[in-house]
Amino acid sequence: MSRVVFVLVPGVHLLDLAGPAQVFGTATDLGLPYELGYVAERELVPSAQGLTLNARTEWPTTGPDDLVVVPGWRISPPHDGRAPGPEPLERLRAHHAAGGTVASVCAGALALGRAGLLDGRRCTTHHELQDELAARHPRATVVRDVLFTTDDRVVTSAGIASGIDLALHLLAVRHGPALAAQVARNMVVYARRNGDEPQASAMLRHRAHLDDVVHRVQDVIDARFTEPLSLARLAVGAGVSERTLTRLFTRATGGLTPLRYQQTLRLERAEHLIGQGSTVAAAAREVGFDDARMLRRLRARAL
């Protein structure tokens, strides 16, 4: 039996906790021997979303096969006000020193840093906290804009939904990618992402604007980016001329034309497939290219 122990802090984000807990809970439903536990300095732990959680104040005995996870919490000045106290930090240090694995989601990396577990190691956190993590722990190597990192049994993730990716990765390492894929399918997760994938997808990076026409066109491209989509067809659907659509789209997305936006989505999806073991040719076909030459050119341009 392997234990997964979650260390809860007042203001804990529910998805930071529930995402990885669901992954290991689903693995248990599939017959893997995991036991989930929740510890805190007080029995009642208010979450950031208003739901109060019940936890144990006594730590279970853990061994090298066990995992201790620190989910993130709502950050408000002073940022350390809700961080785990001396006893949980000592427990984290002792567990790692005994050969166990520790992990964090989002602001949980600040707790690992305070425990001294990030010194000399690669780590990451939510993009809004990366500067603070680097400033507080200058001996750590903060890797920016990735989903998760692993370094000597210290695993850190970007936060919120990326805790699911972190947990699926740990399952894949221990039990193989097929089992992790089975858990992901059971959870209706769109895809099991690699750790070095960006925290914000192309669909999100180019949506920070207020142009309704462009958003409607992006909705079409997002849903059908593997298909041929002519500018004329997109313009008719948006109710504007081709010239107007190009002008609005370029201004709203910071310089991308509709075609370049579609190619960006194809490239991102292809990179994910290649990272999962697909060949360049197979990935090119999957995302809608007639052959692999265009994909190779786009990859070279991106590099």
Results as ranks from 00 to 15, higher is better:
E90Q: 10
D151C: 07
S162D: 09
L118V: 14
I75C: 02
A103T: 05
R91K: 15
A161Y: 01
T28Y: 09
S162N: 11
T26Q: 10
D119V: 03
D165Q: 02
A158M: 05
V69I: 11
S76N: 09
L112I: 10
E132P: 00
V70I: 13
A161C: 09
P60D: 12
L166V: 03
H127G: 02
S104T: 11
S47P: 11
A134H: 09
V105I: 15
L30D: 06
A115S: 13
L166E: 12
L32Q: 14
P64L: 05
P64I: 09
R136M: 11
G85Q: 08
Y38A: 05
G81F: 05
A140R: 10
Q49N: 09
V102H: 13
T61M: 04
L168N: 04
L112M: 14
T57E: 09
S157N: 04
G25T: 13
V155P: 10
L147H: 14
R144V: 04
F148S: 02
E90R: 15
C106F: 02
L110G: 03
D151L: 12
P78R: 13
R56L: 12
A161I: 13
E35I: 01
P86C: 06
C123L: 05
Q130S: 15
D65E: 12
H137K: 00
A161P: 02
V155F: 07
D165M: 02
V143F: 04
R74F: 01
A97I: 09
S104Y: 01
L129I: 02
L133R: 00
T141G: 00
H126L: 10
A48M: 03
A40N: 03
E90G: 10
S162P: 04
A134E: 15
C106Q: 00
R114T: 12
W73H: 01
T28H: 14
D165G: 12
L110A: 11
I75K: 06
A140V: 08
D145N: 11
L168P: 10
G37P: 01
P78W: 04
P64A: 14
L89C: 11
S47K: 02
G120I: 13
G108L: 03
L117N: 09
Q130A: 15
L36R: 08
H126K: 00
H127E: 09
I164G: 04
G99Y: 06
G113R: 11
R42Y: 00
R144D: 06
T156K: 14
G163W: 04
T61L: 15
H169D: 08
R153S: 15
P138S: 11
Q49D: 07
P64S: 11
A27T: 01
F24I: 12
S76H: 09
Q49Y: 06
A134R: 13
E128L: 13
E87L: 14
G72K: 05
L53A: 05
E41R: 13
T150K: 02
T28K: 11
A55F: 07
